[in-house]
Structures are given as C-alpha cells and as structure tokens.
Amino acid sequence: MRILYVEDSSSLRETIGRGLKNAGYIVTLAADGISGLDAALEAEHDVIIIDVMLPGMDGFEMLGELKKAEVDSQILMLTARASIEDRVHGLESGADDYLVKPFAWKELLARVRNLIRHRYGQQSSSLSIGDLKIDTQAQRIWYKNKELRMRPREFSILEYLALRVGKIVSRTELTEHLYDHAVDLKSNAIDSAICNIRKKLTLEGCDEIISTIPRRGYLMESRTSKS
C-alpha cells in the first residue's frame, strides 16, 4: 500500500515515515504543500496524510487542489489544530479522517488501515476468502483456523490481492502499490513473493487460490477446500 505523508516538521516526518515503512507501507514524504501536491498528482496513493500548517500551501488548500484534481486517495488530516471549527472544516472540505497532534502511533496506524479498507470497500478489518482469513489490523493470516507465517511483503501482496478478490491485479499495479520506486519493475521480486505465498498456502492444503493470468497478472478467487 502506498502512503504519501506531507509534514513540515522534519523530525516528525522522518519518524512517522520510518514507522509506516516498518509497518510494510510504501511511503512518500513531502516537506511542504506544493511538493506534496506534486507527489500526490504524480503517483497513485492509497492514503495521503496531510499536516494542516504547511509552508507554501497549507493543508486545506492542498486538500482542495486534490479534490479538484479528483484524486481518489483516502485523505487523513494530521494537525495540531484541535478546534471543532478546524475539524469540521477539514472534514467538510473532503478529508476522510482527522487526527489531532499529539497522537498515539498505534492510533495513526489503525486509522491508516481503516482508510485503506474503506478505499477497497471493506467494512471489517477481517477479510475472508473461503477458508482463508486475513486480519488486516493485526496483520495475521489463518487457513482453517491455523495461523500462517508470512513476511511483511508477502502479507502486503496477499492483503492487496484479497482486497481485489475476483479481479485481475497486474504486476505493475502490485509494484506501484507495494513497492518503492527504487524497485526495478522488471525484477522478479513480485513473482518470487507470489511463489513463496503459494508454497506456504499449499503446505496447509490451500492451493490454486491465486491464479496466474498470462500477460495480465494475478487473480485471487474464493474456492472451497478439497479436503
């Protein structure tokens, strides 16, 4: 999942950026409103976190520009301005959520995950594809009530495919959402991760849940277990 974080405080930007990366997200950082807007328009992000008081262009202005450009990312306003007027203004301007500083890291993370679920039309943090269950909040996976161990990247791919269940997801889409720009699109990182996921699933008896569609991408489908 790709997240854009626009924050003028270098310390906070660095800390939150690191935390989000550690949580498995692809994070783009921007220090002011103008560069933040450029980054938001340049690439698709699942969630954009915007500080309100930004140099150059403030958060509300940036939000207005994003809405004007019909950017469909989920937007979280993150600011020290706690007044009811500011919150109402932010939410009425099109923000999907509003979080006041100082905040708990876990709360920010939970809100980001919640926004991602909303983006993909999920009401619950738990995804069920047949006997496969994914808890996006706790980042845990079960197959027939047996927990499977996945690496953060593998979890992200499985979660993304689960969110897009029944739809073909191209390698490019997966790369854009789950990998940093630094990753070479021609590398076999995606194929390798998919291969690992399939192996772990097959070991537990859950095979053929992820299909490869030649020259198009991957498809996750809900299938009943043979056993």
């Binding site: 906070l12 500083k101 100082p102």
Partner: peptide, 20 residues
C-alpha cells in the same frame, strides 16, 4: 497549542515508533 502539541507529537511518535 500548536507550538506545544507539535514537539509533544514528535517526541511521542519518536518513542512509540522506536518501541514498535
């Protein structure tokens, strides 16, 4: 509030992210 909240947010996030 902004001047106090911002550094509090920074230090809290710094510690919580580090712990996490």
């Amino acid at each position: 509030a902004h001047e106090i909240r911002s550094p509090v947010a920074e230090i809290r996030s710094l510690m919580e992210v580090a712990a996490d």
